[in-house]
Computed example of a mutant assay.
Amino acid sequence: MNLSLLWIPVTLAAAAAQTGRNATQRRLTEKIGTVGATQVRFLYGFPFALIALAVVRLATSEAVPLPNGTFFLYVLAGAMSQIMATALMLSAMRERAFSVVTAYTKTEPVQVALFGLVLLGDQLTPVIALAILIATLGVIVMSVKPGASLTSSGLRPVLSGVVSGAFFALAAIGFRGAILSLGEGSSLIRATTTLVWGLGLQTAILLIWLGLFDRKALTASFAAWRPSLGAGFLGALASQFWFLGFALTTAANVRTLALVEVLMAQAVSHRFLSQATSRREIIGMVLIVGGVALLLLAQS
């Protein structure tokens, strides 16, 4: 395999794992609330990240990179943004279909491209920019039910989903910046090190928050440890692949290809959540596939 294209299977694996994690967290939201379900991906994912770092360290014999001030700024920004993004996404999922809210959050690639250009200097070719716009248009089309508007079920889930996408975009840029700021080591060791720091910070922040303001949700998350453990594992697995993708290419490339998650979410909605697929959603999915295909052609 051409190693320059390794980010493609890595991103597809991340999207698959994240779809499973989102579905698991959506069910947990009904039991332990939005904040409680938000923190399980971090609290229960952190041990798996530590295991992954230990395995990578033993397998490669590489030293764990030492963090610096720039790394801490980027990883903290990424950690906080991802917490906000996850909470807003789960809140919106309580009011709209799983696949539709996933689509709202996937306005993210355009925002990632802009943030990446401004904050990290990641460049875009005209073809890649067009691919991002086409795929994002597919997300927007897919989000509208036939005969209805984007706000047909109220503005709150729409705004929550779109703002969630913005925070996911900032998280992607923050974590890519953190990975790049670790000057030494392979892409794998730098990505895994960043994952451990990110999940560790997120776990500490949410444990303190819940301990102070929502002990009931914290206790409930411990009681629901079986499904929470599954969500944590899938979250850590997805993040491992996301971070490796960020180490290999621009965040815009990764997050645009990640739009295949919308198609995976649609399959989950249809198979497990008994949510039908409309003709407009099919058109949107075709545009997403077209945009992703154009992106991949631009990389060849």
Rank of each mutant, 00 (worst) to 15 (best):
I134M: 13
Q18H: 14
L170R: 08
A49R: 11
P67C: 01
N2L: 06
L90Y: 13
F168L: 11
G161Y: 08
L218F: 11
Q275Y: 07
Y44Q: 03
T86A: 00
A220M: 11
V262L: 06
A49F: 05
G116M: 08
G20E: 07
G154D: 07
S143W: 10
R226Q: 11
W209F: 13
L43E: 10
R226D: 04
M264Y: 15
R156W: 02
A135V: 07
A223H: 13
M142L: 14
L248F: 02
T29E: 05
L133G: 05
S164W: 04
T19S: 15
A224F: 12
G290S: 11
P227S: 03
Q111C: 12
V158E: 01
M89P: 04
W197D: 00
V56P: 01
T277W: 04
N253P: 01
V101F: 06
A54L: 15
T136V: 15
Q18F: 12
A63K: 14
L259A: 09
V55W: 13
R156N: 03
L73Y: 04
F98H: 07
A129R: 07
A92T: 06
P67G: 00
G154T: 12
L182M: 06
H270Y: 15
F175K: 02
V144P: 01
F175C: 00
N68W: 02
A77H: 05
V127S: 10
V262K: 06
A171T: 06
V158F: 14
L124N: 06
L159D: 01
I189W: 02
V268H: 02
T11C: 10
P146Y: 04
G121I: 06
A87P: 04
T107N: 09
V55I: 14
D122M: 08
F48K: 00
A293T: 13
L294M: 07
M142G: 14
N2P: 12
L229H: 10
D214T: 05
S99P: 11
A148Y: 11
F241P: 05
V162G: 11
S269D: 14
S300K: 14
L295Y: 09
G185H: 00
A223K: 15
G78F: 03
T219F: 09
T29R: 12
P227I: 05
L273D: 15
K106E: 04
G183W: 00
L195Y: 07
M84I: 13
M1H: 13
T250V: 02
I179V: 14
L199G: 00
P9A: 08
L76F: 15
L66S: 09
L237T: 12
A217I: 04
P9N: 10
L120Q: 08
I134L: 15
G230L: 10
L210K: 00
R279G: 03
F272S: 08
